[in-house]
């Protein structure tokens, strides 16, 4: 095994180009477990810790450019305003020690359906910035997950950052685990209201081979909100609409039975989380969220 220690992003890309099989390691929270337990013996480990810009973020404009290695702890502490869904999701990641090391780049690189960041990124509509010596491209999050623990990266590419639109409305994230901390998701759900585009987006974790959106549920809800002019009136979402939305979210799951939970439970729980997060976000929108929006609109 070789340990590659690029000092800059350019060196990192060059190293990855030279050794497409090299396994990038940043927080180490996935890779080191695999090494410690003899599940993986890559020829090269590519340490990204010394590439400083991966640990930085830019939040000046309408979009946050979040470095792939920004630790979850910092997202929780500094980006709760622009990225509320991701900040909530970050807070559910493993333990404080893991949150101090891990970042979204690791979640995206591993692309496990159980990664906590995915539902929030899906709901927010993020883009993944990836690069190689050949150049840089941005992959819409909807196209990023291609299979169980597989993603759209080419062999020579590394994840540089995610671009996430600054939240224009309330966002929520909820995850079911059988312990109150330090637990891998049995299933997870992210929901974001986008009052600027009058749309709702969702993300489901651990309930399908990849992280997925509940598109039919979104379409249904978007239509219902439009039809009842709820974005304008600020009235509550009718219970029947919330129920149907929840049922469609459940139906979007394609889960398995495993040691962490049954498929039936996952479907059921995603429905409950969908209903609850819709209620929480919509109530927030009706309250301070929409009031702020109206004030903003009147100015």
């Amino acid at each position: 095994m070789d340990f590659l220690r690029p000092a800059s992003w350019e060196e990192a890309l060059a190293a990855k180009a030279a050794h497409p099989g090299a396994v990038p390691i940043a927080g180490g929270t996935d890779v080191m477990v695999e090494i410690n337990f003899d599940h993986r013996r890559p020829e090269h480990l590519l340490d990204l810790n010394r590439v400083e810009e991966l640990g930085e973020w830019e939040a000046d404009g309408d979009t946050v450019r979040l470095g792939a290695s920004v630790p979850y702890t910092r997202i929780m502490e500094h980006l709760r305003g622009p990225l509320p869904g991701l900040a909530l999701a970050s807070h559910t990641v493993a333990s404080p020690q893991i949150r101090n090391r891990g970042g979204v780049g690791g979640n995206l690189g591993t692309a496990s359906p159980a990664g906590d960041a995915h539902p929030a990124l899906l709901a927010a509509g993020a883009e993944v910035e990836v690069a190689s010596v050949r150049g840089t491209r941005r992959i819409p999050i909807d196209d990023f997950y291609t299979g169980v623990k597989r993603n759209a990266l080419a062999a020579d590419e590394l994840i540089r950052a995610v671009h996430v639109k600054r939240a224009s409305g309330p966002q929520q994230f909820a995850k079911v685990g059988t312990r109150n901390a330090m637990v891998i998701a049995v299933c997870a759900f992210g929901l974001a209201l986008h009052p600027d585009t009058r749309t709702v987006r969702t993300g489901i974790g651990s309930a399908a081979p990849t992280p997925v959106r509940a598109r039919a549920a979104e379409d249904f809800l978007n239509a219902a909100l439009e039809e009842d002019r709820l974005w304008d009136s600020g009235r509550a979402v009718p219970p029947s609409v919330a129920e149907e939305f929840a049922a469609l979210c459940s139906a979007a799951c394609n889960p398995i039975d495993d040691v962490r939970g049954t498929a039936g439970y996952r479907r059921h729980a995603v429905g409950v989380l969908a209903r609850r997060t819709l209620t929480w976000t919509w109530e927030a929108y009706r309250g301070t969220g929409r009031a702020a929006d109206e004030r903003g609109g009147a100015a």
Binding site: H91, T92, K175
Partner: peptide, 9 residues
């Protein structure tokens, strides 16, 4: 119940 996982208010 659910703790930090934010499953119920």
């Amino acid at each position: 119940p659910g703790g930090l996982s934010n499953t119920t208010h």
